[in-house]
Nucleic acid binder design. Structure first.
Lengths: 353, 353
DNA sequence: GCCGGTTGTCGAAGCGCTTCGACAACCGTC
DNA sequence: GACGGTTGTCGAAGCGCTTCGACAACCGGC
């Protein structure tokens, strides 16, 4: 089989094939499929029958070229190995699923392509919009984004959100919730085991916001808190914990927001002679699954990666339709109490009255 | 600004703009960029200068339409939450990076779109080829793939690989290596802590191949081995381990191939009164990072996710060029000895001669 | 100095789709 | 029963690119 141009044509079914089969014009088929003009029921049914029979799927390139919309969004992920992997994964899943529900596909882009990648993607009209994860406080891509006129939604917050659309868990409030919970149980000395040092140094928003939230809540509740970064892996965690308990032996409440550290923390504390929750209460900010399957089951503020993903896509779709949504969407934290937190034991019941 | 058609045109720079700026025909620009015809050095330089100056990037849709190649490959991932997450991530990273090096982008597709998703993607010419992960022994997508004439590379092996291109770590040999190592240290009673039951039931290739490799090697080395599935999370692992040691108290060598179980296993064994490696030797099949950061550092066969990703993309690029590569590429396992394995203690030194 | 062969460039024809304007055919109205 | 207003369909004109064939211009060889 050859086309008029003499080039061999693959087995692809085109809109012309459908039109011929249904006995209508190609434009009519197009209108049936897009619903952009009224088509009589009888014609529509005939066309749809042909579409199904022939197994027609519009050619993506042609459609993008003619309509100036690719029906693809880009998802820019921090694929540096090791980074908060499960959350990223959950998030990606939600994004792909939601995007498909809106009849869009997802192009996977790594953060290390940086601003140049965004520029390329925008200029080539490969995608209609961008979802950006792992945004830093002073992210070099943010000013570019404002210039590019490429619809975008950020997961996380840069320092200045003016003119942007951002979604995320309210980490500030999440840190506060954790402190409030522990303070409510009577704990007066708390510690925040945060993200690895590198994450703070990169100026990653969520780490800074959590820490600020923890500190402010501690002030508010009149409890003391020491915050320290924490690497990943059992060895690192043990080192950090040992040092912490050495210097602050009276710490009885721990907030952990490094999901890779959660398991090791629970495993290490008993080894250091602190039972959970009898001696130390632990509350985590991490994916739900981690918390549920650990032992003891963890009191935690789940990171609602799925919800964030869905919202992000919905917001982006809105922007593609020309709507202007809210600049900032903060998801309220929701603390789930399980078995890793308990009231601070009353040492010597002295009602001194 | 409006086009001839009267529709508003965005700020996009087209090949015509470049041609005009450089004082040549559009086709000349195209040939400069593709290198498909000889162009004089002077013309080429002039064109390239214009390209750079104007910031020209070819419109992806137009290019795809005219050339019948999208310069995009699809990556079909098992995004069911929780599944061997870090490996998937490493793999995705390698794929994106390698694909970009070949001037291709990556479309992210979830496994749950299933065969229909493949059909859609193929028919719409969205992508030039497909990378399929998480292939099952009797995967419904495999026959479709053979029909579709869509170039593809599988990560993992279905039961019948005829006419396909498959890449993976040689899990059969990996299982064998682990057993050989333990047997070499004098361990006579081994256990394989495998993937969750559901993974075996789905007929996921790597789980079955590892188990087969372990069993055959055990026979070969004349040692006993019990193989059992293992869920994820501390609770599940504890249950499984307790039961195992109850029934087979003399097991002194453990092969673990469930990365989510590695941490809990190391944490649980001491709690059950078995020191690692003094009482029990543990060897894992898991990502390198897990093994290095655990305590004690794990003897392991690393899953070379990056290498597999690179190879997969290279093979796919070859197929897109019309080359026919090998049907099956098995990466040889490479056991790294660390601190979690030791010789079985000699109980009563009796040199009976 | 005429000829076959390169070499470098151009113009035109699509790729398969969307969208616009045109226009029959039909509607109820005054 | 001629008239404006819908409603449903069609044809044509691109979208921005690649690719093909054509063809000047130049080459050296005899």
């Amino acid at each position: 089989m050859t086309t008029a141009a003499g080039r061999p044509s693959p087995g692809q079914v085109t809109i012309a094939d459908v039109a011929r089969h249904a006995g209508v014009a190609a434009s009519t088929v197009s209108y049936v499929l897009s619903g952009k003009r009224a088509i009589s029921a009888v014609t529509r049914d005939r066309v749809l029958a042909s579409v199904r029979l022939l197994g027609y799927h519009p050619n993506a390139g042609a459609r993008a070229l003619a309509s100036r919309r690719a029906n693809v969004i880009a998802l820019v992920l921090p694929l540096r190995a090791g980074m908060q992997v499960p959350v990223v994964m959950q998030f990606a899943t939600a994004v792909v699923t939601t995007a498909r529900a809106h009849d869009h596909d997802v192009l996977l882009v790594t953060s290390d392509e940086g601003p140049a990648g965004l520029r390329r993607i925008a200029a080539s009209a490969l995608v209609d919009g961008v979802l950006l994860m792992d945004v830093e406080l002073h992210d070099p891509r943010v000013p570019l984004l404002r210039d590019l006129a490429l619809p975008s939604v950020l997961i996380g917050f840069p320092a200045d959100t003016a003119g942007l659309t951002c979604v995320d868990l309210d980490f500030h409030a999440a840190g506060g919730e954790c402190v409030a919970h522990l303070a409510g149980l009577g704990h007066r000395r708390l510690a925040l085991l945060g993200a690895p040092t590198a994450v703070y140094e990169r100026g990653t928003g969520f780490a800074h916001r959590t820490r600020a939230g923890v500190r402010e809540a501690a002030d508010r509740h009149g409890v003391q808190v020491v915050t320290l970064p924490c690497g990943e892996g059992a060895v690192e965690v043990r080192r950090t914990l040992t040092e912490l308990l050495d210097r602050h032996p009276d710490v009885s409440g721990l907030v952990v927001q490094n999901e890779a550290a959660v398991g090791p923390v629970l495993a290490t504390l008993p080894a250091l002679g602190r039972r959970v929750p009898d001696d130390v209460s632990v509350v985590a900010i991490c994916p739900e699954e981690f918390a549920g399957h650990s032992s003891p089951a963890l009191t935690c503020v789940p990171v609602p990666a799925e919800e964030v993903g869905r919202q992000a896509v919905s917001l982006l779709m809105g922007k593609l339709r020309g709507e202007t949504g809210p600049e900032v969407t903060l998801l309220a934290p929701r603390l789930t109490v399980r078995d890793s937190t308990a009231a601070v034991p009353v040492v010597g019941v002295s009602d001194d009255r």
